[in-house]
Design a binder for these strands. Structure first.
Lengths: 376, 376
DNA sequence: GAGCGTGGTGAAAGCGTTTTCATGTAAGGG
DNA sequence: CCCTTACATGAAAACGCTTTCACCACGCTC
């Protein structure tokens, strides 16, 4: 009877039965206040009534309207997350972690990406402000003063990576790039590398600048002079890595190792090496940064520096929560980085003879640990 | 004077000056109705007053509260997007496109991922329903009936990929997998491959099943018998690709070519080939699917089948808009797929002698076109 | 037995908008 | 010069919820 003809016949112009808190209240024969209290687990509700309410909710498939809720309570339970770009695998992994942690604490998240374009930052902020997010994690370049003022005016808690203004309500996640990068440089030095280049990230990105600085310092610590011509600019994308590697490897005295400001850059470098017929690690060692999941699958698997997305996410959410829920003073969090040795680093073929610090033997003994999965 | 002591001193307990439509109205000496009308570009407003309002808005840095707006107008200007997983690069690229197109039409988007877990689907739906999205694009496996009913009850427009229930308000984006996959199989056959394996996606994923079916049919079209043992299950992740390749290549008579249900799987296959010392494409040809951005950087660059994210996004948004804004009847959209030849496919070394269809010469002439960028 | 908490309940205010409706004013026609 | 028409404007209702506040009915204590 209801096979086909009545499916979208004249009767289908019904309005959807409104399904608000009043409907539930009516059905459970209580007031809307009691329904609200039941939903929000306020203990003073008579268990008998609460059961009636819960049953009505189930029968009607009711759930509260988030917007109305947020409007009246002043709490959106929303956290903003501004990232550089969503197509760089590091960020989805970060977003995943951020979301997991946020949900754990009863928040939802609002993602915005700047695509490294400062123009878009104000759009991101506006979006987030319009939706009345209770806090914002900024995981890209910094925010300019006027925008910061807007956020401060609304008293929106903020958390930055690496660097942020000294304002109330602003927390900073300090990442110890130095540790991981030092390990990376030491690893290369131990293998016998002296000619180590670095491909940076976008100039605007503070986290990228910090990595560069850490690289320079690490080089000095290892007693290797810093040659600025070997620090070339990338863009944290594959293309920039390719281009940078072409420049570096096209010179008359190319480096034997290239460190990269992130893994996508390293992927580009690996690709250029492949294109010009250099074997990695025999002819060129490559180190990435971030240790994204995909590094394991690169050919060869990429030695990289791990920065925990989950730690970052946890710290960000907890910083934001600290402000929102307890309005406690701002805090600083420290995130560690750690070298993960895979197969893209090895003893340079064009071995340097002159090891001024006399650690020739050491270099040999510190060959990269095999990664377990050698062959199947 | 305000150097440090007063920064978080006793005076900082002020409440943030409320910044609602009333404040603007007061400042512009008009009613809130006029402010609202100005904001919403209703032409009947006196230009003089409108100017006053705009100025007041600028001075106060005012912008409307999205929640209140949505509550009263019944329009959230929000579109939901449910994807499989955000860490698979295909999806960020899709999300990017979806967002761009949505913003173009004045919508924002709400992203949810199922992680291939049907349990999480109901959470995704609930999230989206709670926020009162005006439409949902489901880019993962299908939705079960009870959940569909919930959505139908609220009259939320839906758009699916490949397959969807025949209901009012539901559109389907039909992807022509057959075209691209046929091209892929023909390409392999032309090169001389006869032993072609396929690594599928998760069983639940309809789009993955369609790809498998298209592969089978394409094989038959080329006169190559289908050997079910060469169709092995993957998970659309790198790990599944690795495992599947290990199984395929570990046999006594391994295939000379492997097609994959997506590019991540192909990445895993490439990696296993590398591990067991097979050269691609000399010893093994590999074809991916999706043609994600990264395929260009794989070693070797991956031959893949392009499915346009932007087209998919455009179709999805326009299907949703058709329902929301014009409540027009549901439509079907067609998305094409297209082979992109790179360097992971070539003439099999272990050439098949017996070419039953006598296309031995053809095979030779159909060597893969070089990709332009041979060397730098 | 009167006074007094105590604790569960519902009425109603209010969140920041949009939108309807009535009002006032100016222009235009007889 | 008065009446009509048109139109810009503001007052107020409504959106779906949380939360305050007053209320009522208990069970106590003195």
């Amino acid at each position: 009877m209801a096979q086909r003809s009545s499916a979208n016949g004249r009767r289908s112009r019904h309005k959807p039965a409104r399904m608000d808190i009043h409907a539930v209240a009516r059905r459970a024969r209580v007031s809307i206040a009691t329904v609200s209290r039941t939903i929000n687990h306020i203990p003073s509700v008579d268990p008998e009534l609460a059961n009636r309410v819960r049953e009505a909710i189930r029968e009607l498939n009711y759930f509260p309207n988030t917007q109305a809720r947020a409007l009246v309570s002043g709490r959106s339970r929303l956290l903003g997350l501004i990232v550089s770009e969503i197509t760089n695998p590091f960020f989805p992994e970060l977003i995943q972690g951020f979301e997991d942690v946020a949900v754990e604490h009863g928040y939802e998240i609002l993602i915005s990406s700047t695509n490294y374009d400062p123009e878009r930052m104000s759009l991101c902020i506006r979006r987030i402000l319009e939706r009345k997010a209770e806090g914002v994690a900024v995981m890209t370049f910094g925010i300019e003063e006027p925008l910061l003022d807007q956020l401060a005016e609304r008293e929106v808690p903020l958390v930055f990576v690496d660097v942020g203004p000294d304002r109330p309500g602003v927390s900073v996640l300090r990442v110890d790039y130095q540790h991981g990068i030092r390990q990376g440089v030491q690893h290369l030095a131990a293998l016998g590398h002296r000619d180590i280049a670095f491909v940076t990230g976008p100039p605007r990105l503070h986290s990228a600048q910090s990595r560069r600085t850490a690289f320079r310092r690490s080089l000095q610590e290892c007693g290797i002079p810093v040659d600025e011509r070997w620090i070339v600019e990338g863009d944290h994308m594959m293309e920039g890595g390719m281009a940078a590697a072409e420049r570096l490897l096209g010179g008359k005295r190319p480096p034997t190792a290239i460190m990269c400001s992130n893994d996508m850059t390293a992927l580009g470098v690996l690709h250029t090496a492949y294109r010009v017929g250099l074997r990695v690690p025999a002819d060129l060692s490559v180190i990435g940064f971030d240790n994204i999941h995909m590094t394991e699958m690169m050919i060869p698997p990429l030695t990289s520096i791990q920065m925990s997305r989950l730690e970052l996410a946890r710290a960000a959410v907890s910083a934001l929560r600290a402000h929102v829920e307890r309005s406690s003073p701002k805090r600083e969090y420290r995130i560690d980085t750690q070298l993960v040795v895979r197969e893209s680093t090895g003893v340079p073929r064009r071995a340097k003879i002159r090891l001024p610090r006399g650690n020739r033997r050491k270099a040999k003994s510190a060959a990269p640990p095999a990664n377990g999965i050698a062959g199947i």
